[in-house]
Design a binder for these strands. Structure first.
Lengths: 163, 163
DNA sequence: GCTATATAGTTGCGTGCGCACACAACTTCA
DNA sequence: TGAAGTTGTGTGCGCACGCAACTATATAGC
């Protein structure tokens, strides 16, 4: 039988995790240098900016990012102190609250975007052919949809309506 | 000009980061349930087990994992307390020390491997065609080599060729 | 041989984050 | 109406980790 220590699957996950760690470092540093935003803050701002109305329920925001509910609470706390988002209580459900992007939040985000996109270009897309970029997106989408179902924007109470 | 908020590169990095977070959770949970090992401990044990002689200098171990030197110090502290690795001082350089895998460490690792491989199978390779698995490995290797040069096993004494 | 600088590893400190729990408010069902 | 269970959000606690400073040893220059 083959040695499990040499299994290709170990190599693959090792490559995935090392790539992630490297990307997070280099992209996070660029982001922090350009705008002072943490990767988590940036993720929240991006998600809000890409949402019509620039606002989302806390729980939906958590579902659509890599943050847990408690992590999101603290991330929004910080963003609120910086004036980049605001909380608004939900009129139809007084337990709930919306996180809303402020104008300053949008401005800050837009100032950080070019450098961020350049970092992505330098460390991912410029290394790959156009075909590989397409392959990578297709592959990652399969993995993401499997390990994190419900992350898609319209996947609130819909049982199974795949895109 | 196109809206930077809709840039495909944002989608791609979002998918990458969400996939990583999901994989880390599901694979880490499986690992912890099977063997009680943290992902970091597992990574250290795997790297040692795949090295001839089952030992590496601390600095090389750090370079070949996602851990920083300080993180590695503490990871090896814990593994040493559990009896899974040992420290040996280096005779030719009294500043340095080796981390060595113990028999118990190898046994523990081998008991954790089948479940880990099954988790990788369930959450990555079984979702993809064989061709896609190959593509993914090729793509990730390009990214990893770019964001983390020096991670390859034989890249010790290469001088400063990178910024 | 002596000083200056570089390197290997460790540790103090601050931060971020997840888990488990707390609490408020909604829903259901009698 | 109101008791029971569920859901949305926030908090106490502990852990992991990176940065920067520190110790000890090695190497270079003179």
């Amino acid at each position: 039988m083959p040695d499990p220590l040499r299994d290709d699957r170990l190599t693959l996950t090792g490559l995935f995790f090392e790539s992630y760690a490297g990307l997070r470092d280099v992209i996070g540093r660029r982001l922090s240098a350009d705008s002072g935003l943490s990767p988590q803050s940036f993720e929240v701002l991006i998600r809000l900016a890409r949402t019509p109305g620039h606002r989302l329920r806390m729980s939906e925001l958590a579902a659509q990012t890599t943050l847990t509910p408690s992590g999101l609470t603290r991330a929004v706390d910080k963003l609120e102190q910086q004036g980049l988002v605001e909380r608004h209580s939900c009129p139809s459900d007084r337990r709930g609250s919306f996180a809303t992007l402020t104008d300053e939040g949008l401005t800050t985000l837009e100032s950080a975007l070019p450098g961020h996109l350049a970092a992505v270009e330098d460390n991912i897309t410029s290394l790959l052919t156009e075909r590989e970029v397409g392959e990578l997106e297709k592959i990652l989408r399969k993995i993401r949809d499997h390990v994190k179902p419900g992350a898609v924007a319209g996947a609130r109470s819909t049982p199974r309506s795949e895109p």
